[in-house]
Structures are given as structure tokens and as C-alpha cells.
Design a protein around this nucleic acid. Sequence first.
DNA 1: TTGAAATAGCACTAAATTGGTGCGAAATAC
DNA 2: GTATTTCGCACCAATTTAGTGCTATTTCAA
Lengths: 154, 154
Amino acid sequence: MLQLTKRTEYGLIALVHMVDQGGEYTSAREIAESYPIPKRLLAEVLKDLARSGLVNSLRGSTGGYALARPPEQITVGDIVSALEGAPTLASCDTADGNASDCEVEPVCPIRSPLQRIRKGIWLQMQRTSLRALVTPSPQAADLPLTARNGPAAS
Amino acid sequence: MLQLTKRTEYGLIALVHMVDQGGEYTSAREIAESYPIPKRLLAEVLKDLARSGLVNSLRGSTGGYALARPPEQITVGDIVSALEGAPTLASCDTADGNASDCEVEPVCPIRSPLQRIRKGIWLQMQRTSLRALVTPSPQAADLPLTARNGPAAS
DNA sequence: TTGAAATAGCACTAAATTGGTGCGAAATAC
DNA sequence: GTATTTCGCACCAATTTAGTGCTATTTCAA
Ligand code: SF4
Ligand code: SF4
């Protein structure tokens, strides 16, 4: 239904929280205590974020997680991509140019237009940085589509 | 996973097919025979489209469906909205300004930024007309964001 | 050295969503 | 009257998602 997963939301919240903590390593427990979200699930999400390289992790009693890059260099697209995969809109466009298994594909009249929409969504996620999430400057995210075409995948 | 449902895809395909048929009423069977998609499910989708007023329906042996409005006045947003609901991104923003049941909401740091992204997605769907789907003019869908702000809900 | 606290890994169950079908009724053209 | 069609609603199956269990490994600190 065109909605982010809870996992992704939890990840976004956690990362925003980390920005507030500066460069300090923050444990999963500490984050989970700040919001009414299941601690165990958040832990799983944080592991995914660590596996994808968005955050660094430290084990042991004083361990935790911290951003691997400054918040200006982490985009919503990065996070979504790490936790639930980049938006596809249709199961045929794999965002990395792979084969699909859709039977309709050979005669599908909506494939290419859908891809254009997907690209727009992706662009929008890529131009919204984690910094923009924590300090919501209204004009920052309303730049024209042509500006700031970053290293957008695909 | 941020993907349209099959229902929506089938609906889009059906509507594009109808555009090709001009103003003629086209039966569910006829459409289903043009693409390898389950006839029965397509019929269900067409019913939904009729219920939502996007297409007119005619019963009886020569019946079928036809667009209720010219393809320029039907947007992808309309279709998505009719078949799976408007994009929400998060379960809290209901696109019609209603209450949510998310426990995190009172302390959620990502709500407002997510809404901005959702609005952008919605806008993009609203400015892509059914006409643009059937005749993919590359520049047609890349109009500046400010243009063609239709009767966009929310 | 011992133990508490933390991440890592992976499997697993339960809920929700989606894909797809069954079946009978009502309309319409021939 | 019969064939063809939409209509309405319920239903099951597959997939995806939410959330949990459990154990191992690392690290700090007493
Ligand atoms: S080929 Fe067409 S029907 Fe198949 S997944 Fe892509 S858009 Fe959807
Ligand atoms: S309030 Fe925050 S956590 Fe809850 S649904 Fe909205 S965005 Fe997600």
C-alpha cells in the first residue's frame, strides 16, 4: 500500500536520535527507551544498519552504535534502501537493471512510465538528508527536481 | 517494500488499454485476453474502478467499461488512490487529516519530514496523466513541480 | 578473573496484507 | 429465453511484515 515498513521507520527514528547524541555511541537499549517501540526489533534494525555500513558498531558494556558518516551525507534513500530495499513501484524494475519474472513484461504498456515515477520518488529520497530530517528546514526539501542530482543509484 | 499492488498495475494496464479503444466499451474478458493476467482478478479491479467513478460500466452482452473522463483528466494518483489508497509512507498520516493509532506519534521525530516526502510522491502521481502513460512523451512528465497543480487531495 | 552489558547471527512464530477464486444475482442484447 | 456481461460479497492461499527466542562473541570494569 505504498508505505514504509515499521523497520524503516524505526531505523529513521534511531538515526535521528543518534544525530542528537553527536558522535557518542548509543546503545539499542537507550534508544528504545526513548520511544515506545519494541526494543528487540529495534536491535534487529540497528544490526541491519550496521551491516549496510550506515552506522558503526561497538560491542561490550559501553558499546553501541554511531553514525558512520556525517548526517549531511546520509540520505533517506540510503536508509530505506538498507532496510527494505530501494523503491521499485513494480516488481519488474529492479533498480539495478536485472531480469524480472513478470509474465506481462513483453506486452506491458505501463512499464516505462512507471519507471519514471519511481525515479522521481527515488530522487526525492536521495535529496533528503538525515540532517534535513533532524532540522526540518521547510525550503531545504523543496528544491526543484533538477537540483542536487547526487550519486543516485540507477 | 514501497511497491504498487498487482491490482493497481492491472488497473493501470486496463485503463491504458481502454484509451486505445477510444470511447468504445470494452469487456473485462477482452482486456484480460490481451495480457497474461488472471481474468477473474482483473474483473474485480474493474469493478473497483467503476465504483470509484473512474470508468463507466455497461451490463449485458455488449457491455463493458469505458473511461468516465478524457485520459488527460485521469491521473495515476487517481488510479492508485482508487485501487490501493493514496500513498501514506507512514501509518500515521492518513492523507485526509485523520487520527492515527501510532504509539510513537507524540514523540515521533520523523513525522513531519516524512509527510513532505509523501506529498512529493503524491504530486508526482497527480501530475502524470493517463494520457502521459499511453503516449510516453519524455518531457511531458518532467514538468516543473509548480505546474499543473490539479485538484490534488490533501 | 569474573561477570554484566552490549552487539552478531540466525531461526522462528504470528499477524497483516495481498493475490486470486467461488458463487449466485441482476441487467441487457439478440 | 439464453448467452453474455457486470455486481456484490465472501472466501482461501501465498507472500510479506512484525515481533520474539536463543546462543555466541566482544568489551569494559569491578
Ligand atoms: S512488466 Fe508491467 S505488469 Fe509486469 S511488473 Fe512491470 S509494470 Fe508490472
Ligand atoms: S508517528 Fe512516527 S512512527 Fe508513528 S507512524 Fe507516524 S512516522 Fe511512523
